[in-house]
Write a protein that binds this DNA or RNA. Sequence first.
DNA 1: TGGAGCATACCAACTAGTCGGTATGTCTGT
DNA 2: ACAGACATACCGACTAGTTGGTATGCTCCA
Lengths: 199, 199
Amino acid sequence: MTLTSKQSARRKLIDAATLLFRRNGYIATTVDQICAEAGVTKGACFHHFESKESLAEACLDQWDKQVVAMHHNAPFRSIADPLEKLFGCIDFFAGVFENPNMLKSCLAGTTVQEVSETHPALREAAQACFASGERQFQTLLDDACRSRDIKLDTPSLAKLWMATIQGSLLLYKASREDAVLPNNLRHFRDYIEKLLATT
Amino acid sequence: MTLTSKQSARRKLIDAATLLFRRNGYIATTVDQICAEAGVTKGACFHHFESKESLAEACLDQWDKQVVAMHHNAPFRSIADPLEKLFGCIDFFAGVFENPNMLKSCLAGTTVQEVSETHPALREAAQACFASGERQFQTLLDDACRSRDIKLDTPSLAKLWMATIQGSLLLYKASREDAVLPNNLRHFRDYIEKLLATT
DNA sequence: TGGAGCATACCAACTAGTCGGTATGTCTGT
DNA sequence: ACAGACATACCGACTAGTTGGTATGCTCCA
């Protein structure tokens, strides 16, 4: 009871902050809003986190772990053929973003745009999220290349993958067109197909 | 003198605000900072703009026009062959971003991330910027397709183009790696080449 | 002489963060 | 078993400073 309630206050703050940061950004979200959303007082918030920035750092750490976990638990993980597994991954993310209830916003992406020049710790935490995502996708790419005996610049393609996702999320926020994400991921898939077919 | 000084105060505010918004974001930039950067007092600022938001709207309008003008005056404009012109455009932007003195940040991209849920007028102004950019690129794509008698989904490719730029700028802010932009644009060019060769 | 352009002084609302205090344990020696 | 010492989680009023925006007046040209 003690431990769970201890965990839950901290956890509730991180979850509430993550939601509000994704929706309204880091700077525009106030600590009071986070506390209200979490159903926790300000005193409790600054008991668990020494500053708003360190709360955001904790959010980014959790975000990183959640995305990694999503990769690990996704259905495409069980596909045997490395190439099909790679395409399964791309299609999986396209499907995730097709869900209209999904909040189409990446914590790392929204945060880093605002704070890259002013909050180095947050910039690095966001960069760590991107690096994890790219590493996981690159592994799939490397396996696919090996299975077909093809050499590609997989680190650079993994960055293109992340850029395509982040750019598409940004354009979605401007246009509110649900098709942006799936369409751009379809193009990405198409490019990978051509690369793995031609060479 | 009256006209020029009138124009210049307004113009100085827009230029200063654009710079600071690109660097630190819309919310984090204060009106006082903008006034200081512009060398103008707050009274003058609110004489020309009724609110911070309307100043940002003016910035986005000017940004849109500047990007359109950059397209129109770029060297690739004079290339005769539509396909070469298209590739000239992609290479032109890759070159622009390769300049280390270039502030790698798009006003529309940074702004819309922060305010898409809270400032509809700014979201629409940013969307207008994206739409202009996509329209111009799509024209080049359409011409290239026509010249080679190939049919492609050019509106969707124009959106991919914009997403690639925006996503790459975002990843640059996180990683500070100069190669991100040119590498991703090279991949984009490669994809277009394959599309125009295959079909 | 009147109005556009601009400066100075100012304000109410809001912000992140603080601080004194409470409630509920947990551990230790007897 | 139990008192006393201490630790952790939490509360919410408070503060010092900041924010976008305003009220008022000066200046200069038509």
